[in-house]
Amino acid sequence: MDIFIQQMVNGLTIGSLYALVALGYTMVYGVMRLINFAHGDLVAMSAFVGLTVYTQIFGENITSLVAVITVFVFTAAIVALVGVLLERLAYRPLRTAPRLSAVVSALGAGLVIQNSVMLIWGPNMKIFPSNIFPSTIWSFGGVVITFTQVMILGLSSILMVGLYFFINRTKIGTAIRAVAIDQDAAKLMGINVNRIIMIIFVIGSALGAVAGLFIGVYYRGVTFDMGWMYGLNAFVAAIMGGIGNIPGAMLGGLMLGLFNAMITGYISSQWAETFTFVLLIVILVFRPTGILGEKVAEKV
């Protein structure tokens, strides 16, 4: 039973990270029908940017709330800027092109980001300092929960709830939903579609940056090519939940995190990916557009 609860804590932690990244995929997909294959690499980049910001501004040993907040805000801002540039340079020129052209462009952009990270920070693993968050741990019986885990769970919950309200309760959120449903109609209603898409990239990239930083803080070792693995898992989570659907990405992320933790805890990590994709395919066989994804019948 302890193992079960422990794996649940671990699973929810990693699941929250998947969910944050999955939101980036799903929001871009929702408005542009594009799988942003560069998103995972953006997440990886965030970890490196964050590490540099941290060591450059605060040195190795200063930990304070101010330092942590600064690093998060700074990194999110830089990565959001890169996300916006990405959209401007690699996707906007292809908005009217065949859908798959933009996919290739996204794959190319992923290569560019990943290899830039490698050229700037080098091909070797970088290690996050261990003292960014206090090393406090709480244990309940055999179950251990770390301060970092609490931070990850707490902050990602706040961000997700915030995003949910932003999308559903604000004017910009309404505009985002309108653009997702019908770009042309939204344009006729006076919505500036380019601006909405920019906002999507800002939010998606910033959430990805938070996830990337947490990955650094939680796992400590970060590599320039780790974006592929996190990106793929998050993307799978978005698909499971129903891509384009925001609660779906959250649900998919948490579900996949939990599922992975249980498989690793009880069966074997050797087959973790196999189990992930078997689960995905089984879900899709029964629900072709994911768990919360709506089946859109084409109007003839």
């Binding site: 340079l89 690699a90 020129p93 292809l94 092109a97 052209s101 933009a102 290739v104 462009s105 794959l107 190319g108 952009a109 992923g110 290569l111 560019v112 980001i113 990943q114 290899n115 830039s116 050229l119």
Partner: peptide, 14 residues
């Protein structure tokens, strides 16, 4: 090499 390669993929598609 792959940096240039990625750029080339984007440019070709555009």
């Amino acid at each position: 090499r792959y940096l240039v390669f990625g750029l080339a993929m984007i440019l070709t598609m555009i």
